[in-house]
């Protein structure tokens, strides 16, 4: 089972000096936070805000690479979570064949947003995430921890 997720936004995690991409399902009943680095967060933020930078950023370059040969991103799936490392798969079509490529979720999400491709999460990943620990962690966050990225 996989559930379609929407990127709801980005948060700064002051404890780990990292950023969190918040994914939610359409019913708003499930939430999946994904910790990413600063440059990955910035790339996702640019795509969310529809900002075209003066020069192509890495994921714009990635998209150009695929566009050059008419390869299309069909969907991305966050598949597994293992000791805080997430795994995802990018499904593509190229020359009438289908391909599945292993990636980090940050690259998969940044590319999916630029390709207008849906993002899914496998049930097991969502289950692992809805732990008490996470709920507690989120409760402890202050409103000022939420906000837009400045870069």
């Amino acid at each position: 089972m996989i559930t379609q997720m929407q990127v709801k936004g980005l948060m700064f995690d002051p404890y780990n000096n990292a950023y969190i991409v918040i994914l939610r399902d359409d019913e708003q009943s499930e939430m999946l936070p994904i910790w990413v680095g600063k440059s990955e967060a910035s790339s996702i933020s640019l795509a969310l805000e529809n900002v075209a930078p003066p020069r192509p950023m890495t994921h714009d370059f990635m998209k150009s690479y695929l566009d050059a040969f008419d390869a299309k991103v069909i969907s991305v799936v966050i598949t597994d979570l293992n000791e805080n490392t997430y795994f995802s798969k990018i499904h593509l079509t190229y020359a009438d064949s289908e391909y599945t490529v292993d990636s980090r979720p940050s690259d998969a999400i940044a590319l999916a947003l630029r390709s207008h491709a849906p993002i899914f999460a496998s049930e097991s990943v969502i289950r692992k995430q809805t732990s008490e620990e996470l709920d507690q962690w989120l409760e402890n966050l202050k409103p000022e921890d939420f906000g837009k990225l400045d870069s």
Partner: peptide, 17 residues
């Protein structure tokens, strides 16, 4: 885990680019 440019390289390997 594969970093961004490793992913681009991986696309190339899958497609023969």
């Amino acid at each position: 885990r594969p970093m961004s440019h490793d992913l681009v390289k991986s696309f190339g390997e899958h497609f023969g680019i």
